[in-house]
Design a protein around this nucleic acid. Structure first.
Length: 508
RNA sequence: GGGCCGGUAGCUCAAUGGUAGAGCACUGCCCUUUUAAGGCAGGGGUUCUGGGUUCGAGUCCCAGCCGGCUCACCA
């Protein structure tokens, strides 16, 4: 419908393309031999004085995408983008010759060219390639988005990420940081003697987390398979097998809502360490995250949505302490930790909370006290946990795979790490008693039969594995996307995933 | 799925219910150190779709489609 004008622009560019062919240029040549990338040139020579450049006449061959053109009659300037940098070139007819200058006049924003020449500095001081030869490498048939407002339509940014990367500063940096973050994690864990492994993404039984799975089907085996919601149970099978320290960084898939903090496929780090418990995992996390921050930011602090976040120290609160501390004043006098001693007391506090709450918590007669406590925690506390904070001691009922606390069987040895109001990590002392694990699964099965589709399924082989004996172990999962959000000050998880899930584009 | 906000030129955005505009991009001409280059002259629109109200709708009403935020679910 609005394609008419775009079609006209494309037609124009096609005509230019054939004009370029008429000049004798190959339209889509095989390769371009370059001596430098744009960032290399800028890094190496940006401090050279004009006289030095004049004396040295440094010769370069460099390629990139044309981002600006400023013609001046029989000469002109352009900026080439490559490698995240922009390098200016200066093209004059008496230097490049008639044919190459004709090519220059036929260039559009977005075209990809190579240039050969020497470096100099313009009157205004900008390091520039004085071209004596141009190569045509590829045409941009479709016009680029606006050159200084960039591309702001969020849908197009995500759908056509290549455009976003081309014209919006900072997008590339986010994904470079994400890559550095993952590399830093690998280096750290490798240094701790961990083995990186890969476990099934397609599982006959989805386990390891309370979440609804995606279903798929294997034709030859006529078998229903689930995209994994977590690698957890497989990684612990490896602990049983004697791989004492393993980790995996890979995708999980959860068939649930999409939000600024949720994408149906997301990247998770999970690691397990034999002979360790959740306190060891906490200590390890306190060493890992500063390392990662240092590698990604070169600093132990970062800005996140208006908050200054520091990775220098991590706070620790139990779930009950956190609720007591962050109790909303409007809900009346805050509970003390002792007020939760009797498990069912939590329901009275939820009622108190609900009286002033915008969104009251719903709970039925059969809601387990532990599940209610966890919900109260999320409602009252989560958003306040800006600085890195470990929340420890989770209720048994919401933790089917974690080991009970020795002094309080209603709670487990588990923590979650919160940063910027988001859950970033989840860890526990792994339950390794097969009988207890079986009981837990059966309780989950009960919830499932009552309609809770996120309740954990019974995994008989996992029970069997535990029955061979699993050493005590600590395990942890860290959400890579969310951690990247914190370290890149990104508001939405979609800004740290190159191609977030979108509804399919409507065919026009 | 609910609530709120939005959809106008390729891009970024304007337009008390009264002739649809600007900047960038595009076309032509001038310009051999510019940089949001500049000057002159042009072309480009089913205002998301379909109904309705009105003498007259980009604008008001209804329905739908698409998107964002938010709530619910979840990490």
């Amino acid at each position: 419908m609005h394609a008419d004008e775009q079609d006209a622009l494309i037609l124009q560019r096609r005509k230019k393309l054939s004009a370029i062919a008429d000049l004798g240029f190959e339209l889509y040549p095989r390769k371009f031999e370059f001596t430098h990338t744009a960032p290399e040139i800028l890094q190496k020579y940006s401090r050279s004085a004009p006289e030095e450049l004049e004396a040295e006449k440094v010769r370069v061959r460099v390629a990139g995408r044309v981002m600006t053109i400023r013609p001046h009659g029989k000469a002109g300037f352009a900026h080439l983008a490559s490698g995240g940098a922009r390098l200016q070139i200066y093209v004059r007819r008496d230097a490049v010759g008639e044919r190459d200058f004709e090519l220059f006049k036929l260039l559009d924003l977005g075209d990809i060219i190579g240039v050969e020449g020497y470096l100099f500095r313009t009157r205004t001081g900008e390091l520039t390639v004085h071209a004596d030869r141009l190569s045509f490498l590829a045409k941009s048939l479709i016009p680029l988005p606006e050159k200084w407002h960039g591309l702001s339509d969020v849908e197009i940014r995500y759908r056509q990420r290549y455009l976003d990367l081309m014209v919006n500063d900072g997008v590339r940096r986010v994904f470079e940081r994400r890559s550095r973050l993952i590399r830093a994690i690998r280096e750290f864990l490798d240094g701790e003697g961990y083995l990186e492994v890969e476990t099934p993404m397609m599982q006959p039984l989805p386990g390891g987390a309370m979440a609804r799975p995606f279903v798929t089907h294997h034709n030859a085996l006529d078998l229903s398979l689930y995209l994994r919601v977590a690698p957890e149970l497989y990684l612990k099978r490896l602990i049983v097998g004697g791989l004492d320290r393993v980790y995996e960084i890979n995708r999980n898939f959860r068939n649930e809502g999409i939000s600024t903090q949720h994408n149906p496929e997301f990247t998770m780090l999970e690691f397990y360490q034999a002979y360790a418990d959740y306190r060891d995992m906490m200590a390890l996390t306190e060493r890992l995250l500063p390392r990662v921050a240092q590698a990604v930011l070169g600093d132990l602090e970062c800005e996140f949505q208006g908050h200054r976040i520091s990775f220098r120290s991590f706070e620790r609160l139990t779930m009950k302490e956190a609720i007591a501390r962050h109790w909303p004043p409007a809900a009346g006098p805050a509970p003390k930790v002792e007020d939760f001693a009797e498990p069912r007391a939590v329901f009275r506090w939820i009622e108190a909370y609900n009286r002033s709450a915008e969104k009251p918590l719903a709970f039925g007669d059969d809601t387990a006290p532990g599940a209610a406590l966890a919900e109260l925690f999320e409602a009252v506390v989560e958003e306040h946990l800006i600085q890195p904070t470990f929340i420890l001691d989770f209720p048994l009922e919401v933790s089917p795979l974690a080991k009970q606390k020795s002094d309080d069987p209603n709670f487990v040895e588990r923590f979650e790490l919160y940063i910027g109001g988001m859950e970033i990590a989840n860890a526990f002392s792994e339950l390794n008693d097969p009988c207890e694990q079986k009981d837990r699964f059966e309780y989950q099965q009960l919830l499932r039969e009552k309609g809770d589709l996120t309740a954990h399924a019974i995994d008989e082989d996992y029970i069997r594995a535990l029955s061979y004996g699993m050493p005590p172990a600590g395990g942890e999962g860290i959400g890579i996307d969310r951690l990247t959000m914190v370290l890149t000050d990104s508001r939405s998880i979609r800004d740290v995933i190159l191609f977030p899930l979108l509804r399919p584009e409507k065919s026009s």
